[in-house]
């Protein structure tokens, strides 16, 4: 498990990370979302003990990273795929890392095979494509077979086949009970990969919840109802607490689920021609969140007043920049 409490990082005048608090749980893929420059990489570097926090703390399995006795066996990270010496072969690269972390050298061919680089093991990494570098970075993270894994933008530079491979790998790693924390600025990618997302903007927490919870709060999540008795049924639905929008003669209903709407129609003897739930894309939800995140936070179970306050402050700052 990864835990971040009040984490803050200031670079001169800029506040790169501002009082960030969240937990990353094992067993699921957790997405770390935010626009470029929102502080994702800085946060990950602080978790890995590379950058010193200005305030707050980050722990992995309850310990400061720098205090782990065998860090590579506990945490694996891909922070920057291009950070490889171009003169070294893929195998030489993995060998020195394995040695530094006291990982069995037998893991080197194993992870090379796992990421599909076994055929280029003795080629210099200077000639690798960005996609191959990403695979090598993932292999490096997996060397010590750690229970906690962190990947910073792992699908950058990968072709569609590679993206699908990463997606499946992340899900598989999570299903083995590992903590998997993946950053991305691509909402659609996270939607297909992560169960839970942590959204930050300008270094502050904007949202922390399951994708389902996040998208449910969006105005873009609704049940589309088509019925010949639209006016009559709209009145019924509003009485039951539904919020209605009309579009091309259809009713777009929020705050009521499709089963409830179906039951209501049956009870009143109203014929339905269409009853289809529509879930908002994460992307739509994200843009709304940056306007509407206090409302969202109040729906989330377990959100402390502090979180809401932080979120409100983040909101104000987001508004300012617009």
């Amino acid at each position: 498990m990864i835990e971040v409490r009040g984490l803050t990082k200031r670079f001169g005048e800029t506040l790169a990370v501002d009082q960030l608090s969240f937990q990353v749980q094992p067993g699921i893929v957790t997405g770390f979302l935010g626009p470029n420059g929102s502080g994702k990489s800085t946060t990950m570097r602080m978790i890995m003990g590379l950058d010193n926090p200005t305030a707050g703390a980050a722990t992995v399995n309850g310990k400061d990273y720098r205090e782990l006795s065998a860090p590579m066996h506990e945490v694996g990270a891909l922070l920057d795929a291009k950070a490889v010496h171009g003169g070294m072969t893929a195998e030489q690269h993995l060998r020195w890392v394995a040695r530094a972390g006291k990982v069995s050298p037998g893991r080197v061919p194993a992870v090379l095979e796992l990421v599909g680089l076994e055929k280029v093991a003795d080629r210099r990494t200077g000639g690798f494509s960005l996609g191959m570098m990403q695979r090598l970075g993932i292999a490096t993270a997996l060397l010590g077979d750690p229970k906690v894994l962190m990947f910073d933008e792992p699908v950058n530079g990968l072709d569609p086949e590679g993206i699908r491979w990463v997606r499946n790998l992340l899900k598989q790693l999570a299903s083995e009970g590992r903590t998997v924390f993946v950053s991305s600025h691509l909402m659609s990618e996270m939607e297909a990969t992560a169960e839970h997302v942590i959204v930050i903007g300008r270094g502050r927490l904007i949202a922390d919840g399951s994708i389902e919870a996040l998208t449910q709060g969006s105005t873009d999540s609704y049940v589309r109802v088509v019925t010949p008795k639209a006016n009559e049924f709209a009145g019924v639905l509003e009485e039951e607490g539904g919020r209605i929008r009309r579009e091309d003669g259809a009713l777009l209903v929020r705050d009521l689920g499709a089963p409830a709407i179906g039951e209501l129609a049956a009870a009143r003897g109203i014929a339905l021609h269409e009853l289809s739930p529509h879930r908002a894309r994460l992307e739509a939800a994200f843009f709304e969140l940056t306007r509407d995140s206090v409302e969202y936070q109040s729906r989330e179970d377990g959100a402390s007043p502090d979180d809401v306050a932080v979120t409100a402050a983040a909101l104000a700052q987001e508004e300012e920049t617009r």
Binding site: G49, P71, A83, V97, G101
Partner: peptide, 11 residues
């Protein structure tokens, strides 16, 4: 940037 890997392997 390789130094970051060096220092994560050897904190």
């Amino acid at each position: 940037g390789l130094v970051r890997l060096t220092f994560t392997a050897t904190p």
